[in-house]
Write a protein that binds this DNA or RNA. Sequence first.
RNA 1: GCGGUCGUGGCGAAGGGGUUAACGCAUCGGACUGUGACUCCGACAUUCGCGGGUUCAAUUCCCGUCGAUCGCCCCA
Length: 414
Amino acid sequence: MAFQKPTGTQDFLPGTVEKWQYVEEKARDLCRRFNYREIRTPMFEQTELFQRGVGETTDVVQKEMYTFEDKGHRSMTLRPEGTAGVVRAYAENKLYGEPDVSKLYYMGPMFRYERPQAGRYRQFHQFGVEAFGSVDPAIDVEVIALGLQFFKELGLKDVSVEINSVGTSETRAAYNEALLGFLRPMKDTLCKDCQHRMERNPMRVLDCKVDQDKFVGAPSILDSLDEESTAYFQQVKDHLTAMEVPYRVNERLVRGLDYYTHTAFEYKAQGIGAIDTIGGGGRYNKLVAEVGGPDQPGIGFGIGMERLQLILASQEVEVPAVKPIDVYLVAIGEAAEKETVKQLFKLRTLGFSAERDYLGRKIKAQMKSADRFQARYTAILGDDELSRGEISLKAMDTGEQQNVKLAQLADHLK
RNA sequence: GCGGUCGUGGCGAAGGGGUUAACGCAUCGGACUGUGACUCCGACAUUCGCGGGUUCAAUUCCCGUCGAUCGCCCCA
């Protein structure tokens, strides 16, 4: 057996790549309208950036990173998510010195060493946006709405957004204490996963699939927020309502990355097996400072492109898979062959997509080939046409055929 | 890191110890000797992920390994 691709990676072949390009074009156009500009950061960064940014205690950092030592003995890590690198670039390039809010977007591969399953890969792709420098709730809702609009314009149905406020690190600590007070008495009755979760991230326990019924009456994080956080969250909700953006408050929503403060949200949809989150994000007011930048706030989201593709497929959304070509040239005989080589190149230089046969197949097989390429026209050149300086042009949709002057072939293709 | 299922041609898929490895799609050739999307005919796996074991005999049974897939944890 020859080489195989690494576990959890994918080859995106022609026929599939077109679907990705289509989605990427939609994302870019949307970002243009919302005035977000693209940023491209390295695929790997110093390991410490992710340890500090994403959080030392998270699963992502503890067990999922692709970390290696480079030849200069520096510890480097393939980026497991997009935000940390963008935050680093924002600080390092002093974008905070620019007069306006920095509104950025990115698309690209991320890497996490995990066991693959439906909608989960070791190399996966995210489209994300980040907005730095503002604590106006209007920017929170802009980001949330941008993501939802993306799904909407792609033609997806039943994508919902859940929002929550996780407050500040202080109020979250207070909440965790209150929650533990509620959970401790029942600790022995909880599943073993939950017993672990109690230590690592108590809020996760409330997400448990096995003992949901035990948690009625559990304290809500929303009751632990300070006045300012509560007011902020209220403004976010008010804006969303005014914009007629449907949302659902999920007071149990927790995100797996440590840097979130205040607004947190997830985009949800069915259609990828056991997984229902296709994107998520939130506000991170301390992250820029945490990685050594100035005390600037930020907010953003990341959307999983593989998951998006899976949902597009499960909802049978029409996404172009083939880009039709303009014309397929068929030559019969040596003289025609020579002329065809010339015409093919000429048409291409004039801006047409053109193809021909290189396998010495019969005319019939070449016509089938033209059909597969979804050629608008097939142009057939034989000795009789050639002797009159013409070529036979067939419109593949109607089957109509006419002889046109070779010199005017391009004009007939418009 | 843990668990379930699966691994047969380019693709889908039957076969479950014995020597011709079904069938469908696609492809190529022909009927139509210069024309696609219909029909019919023909061709197309010295071989069943890889390594080892059991056996007179293994694609079929056993072990290992790699891979795929689904789920848990966690996440996009």
